[in-house]
Nucleic acid binder design. Structure first.
Lengths: 282, 282
DNA sequence: GGGCGGCGATACCCTCCGGGTATCGATTCC
DNA sequence: GGAATCGATACCCGGAGGGTATCGCCGCCC
């Protein structure tokens, strides 16, 4: 199977529409139809159930969609990492570390300092990204290493090392009656009238249905909480970022959050090994 | 990058010889040279250092070799799993479980029985393979799930669930003076005169240098030990397989061995989930 | 040291595959 | 029932990919 075929299939499977998929790929619709037919014939498998009005994925099709995305990421990663290896060999080497904007407040500067103090340390570019993008960046080679927060981020398919674990706190407006309590449980926070939990976007940019406000980053979220429009349960380490208008109350039965440093398997980079070593020593 | 280009590059990088690589790929040498040149031009990276007498990998080249192999495995896995999903939807579904021949003696039948007793269980094909082949089979889609033994096998890049941990024992000829001891430490076994540790083959079939005999599977190994030509340190669970002519003595400071069940990430198979559930319940 | 042999690069040709345009056939909706 | 939508089909063209012949370079051996 050629990556071109796979790219074509993924486009059609995502759009469920040959015309739009062709447009996205920058080709005309007929060659796309033909390519998909050819792919199906070669695999000996029906991937799409087409009528003249609709396109549906078969079981095999949805497996190929999931696996194909991963495979395309792997190919892209190979390409990117080869390019970067060439750069590192001649010009300026470096690492790209990715983490969620707003998360791992204290840990990140400590890690960077600890690594920078090592002999042979290379420059580290920090990439702050939105929710759920880190895995993608790590998988397709745009980043070398990530700080992930289990159980929110899945570290599936990566090598990891645990760095620290912490409890979670409910973040409430300072004026809220519950803000003075010594601790809460998740049921208390979930049921707060007028302060629903926010909704985070999926990877494709759409939001799950529900009552809460749609948020895209931590700044938005904290502002909404201060305005009395939302509440949230966040890792303890967010505390230093909270203004005077917000209160944090430990939530005893919330799952603990583990910060892990994650990197793609079969990585033989000296610099990456050093960074991981520095991280585990903190 | 197309998979064809990647396959071509991997072939050349493995053979370090354009002629042989072309032969292996079933094409003539000139188009292969051209394809590699084109790939280098598109990437903007020198992958191979060629003289008319030798071909060497550059740093970028060896990165692309490692990453490219993984990417090709991923593409192959996508293809295979799509095919199998189609089979499972229409004809006979099934799972392929792979484990090292000779290992996980008691565990495997217990697991298969426990799973078979579940409602909705599908047939499980068991694939016994040699050392270090399991990761490959799992990665390229020929197997759905594996039993791995850490720290011998690396579970890098897979989702895993720990099943059990055990100590290790030294396996010696029954007549050996140390066979009667209650326990040993690794230094004792490493230094046994005339009973060197065996050498296992690498993935490419070559053996590391050293004094011990070359072995390929457990049967060979046990026979060599019985003959007084070797000794070995193996997980405790090998005990039931030992004949009367062999003795097992606990090695206190050997690393403990953890048996894990591993499967590729983003697996959405109902059957696989059931098998993992059965495994964790044991 | 000069001829030989091995190996990668180059030159040139040809075939077929991937892409484009025009059009058909089916289905749905007004 | 006609128009609009959408995937499939028919047909054409250009270029990418593969083959053969040959060159140029460099160790090696008699």
């Amino acid at each position: 199977m050629e990556t071109r075929e796979l790219r074509y299939f993924v486009a059609v499977a995502e759009e469920l529409h040959f015309g739009r998929a062709a447009q996205r790929l920058g080709i005309a619709q007929p060659p796309l139809s033909r390519a998909i037919r050819q792919l199906e014939r070669r695999l000996g498998v029906t991937l799409l159930e087409r009528t003249s009005r609709s396109v549906l994925l078969t079981e095999a099709g949805s497996v190929l969609l999931a696996e194909g995305r991963a495979a395309l990421d792997a190919v892209e990663a190979a390409e990117r990492r080869a390019r970067r290896a060439a750069l590192a060999a001649t010009g300026r080497p470096g690492l790209v570390l990715v983490t969620k904007a707003g998360a791992s407040g204290e840990l990140l500067p400590k890690l960077l300092d600890a690594y920078a103090a090592e002999p042979g340390a290379v420059p580290v570019d920090v990439l702050l990204c939105g929710i759920g993008e880190q895995e993608r960046l790590l998988r397709d080679g745009r980043a070398d290493v990530a700080l992930l927060h289990r159980p929110f981020d899945s570290a599936n398919g990566f090598d990891t090392e645990e760095l620290c674990t912490e409890g979670q706190v409910a973040v409430l407006p300072a004026w809220h009656p519950l803000a003075g309590r010594a601790h809460l449980c998740t049921a208390d926070v979930a049921a707060l009238p007028g302060l629903p939990m926010p909704r985070w976007p999926h990877r494709d940019g759409t939001y799950p249905p529900g009552p809460g406000p749609q948020v895209r980053d931590h700044t938005q979220l904290l502002q909404l909480i201060a305005l009395g429009r939302a509440s949230a349960i966040l890792p303890e380490s967010c505390r230093p970022q909270l203004g005077r208008d917000l209160a944090a109350v430990p939530v005893l039965d919330a799952p603990t959050v583990t910060t892990v440093i994650a990197w793609p398997p079969h990585s033989r980079s000296q610099a990456l090994a050093g960074l991981v070593r520095a991280a585990t020593r903190i």
